[in-house]
Amino acid sequence: MASTTEPAPTPAPAPTVGFDLDMTLIDSRPGIRACYQALAERTGTYIDADLTVTRLGPPLVEELIHWFPADQVAAMADLYRSMYPSIAIAASPAMPGAREAIAAVRQAGGRAIVVTAKFEPNAKLHLEHLGIEPDAVIGDLWAEQKAEALREHGAGVYVGDHLGDIRGARAAGALSVAVPTGPCDAGELAEAGADVVLTDLTEFPAWLAAYRPARA
Rank of each mutant, 00 (worst) to 15 (best):
T4N: 13
A8L: 14
P13V: 14
T16I: 12
V17G: 12
G18P: 02
D20E: 05
D22E: 07
M23K: 06
T24R: 00
R29F: 13
R29K: 14
G31Y: 05
R33W: 04
C35L: 10
C35S: 14
Y36Q: 06
Y36H: 14
L39Y: 12
E41P: 04
G44K: 00
G44F: 09
Y46R: 12
D48R: 01
A49W: 11
R55Y: 13
P58K: 02
L64M: 13
I65K: 15
P69N: 11
Q72C: 14
A77I: 01
A77E: 09
D78Q: 13
R81W: 10
I87K: 02
I89L: 12
P93D: 06
P96E: 00
E100R: 01
A101D: 04
A103L: 09
R106F: 11
A108K: 00
A108F: 04
G110Q: 01
V114E: 02
A123Y: 03
G131I: 04
G131C: 11
V137I: 14
D140T: 11
L141A: 15
L150D: 09
E152Q: 08
H153N: 07
A155M: 01
A155E: 01
V157R: 03
L163M: 04
G164S: 03
G164M: 01
A169N: 04
R170G: 10
A172C: 10
L175P: 11
P180L: 01
T181K: 00
G182T: 00
A192S: 13
D195V: 01
V197M: 04
V197N: 03
T199Q: 11
L201V: 10
T202I: 03
T202Y: 05
E203Q: 15
F204D: 03
P213M: 02
R215C: 15
R215K: 11
A216L: 05
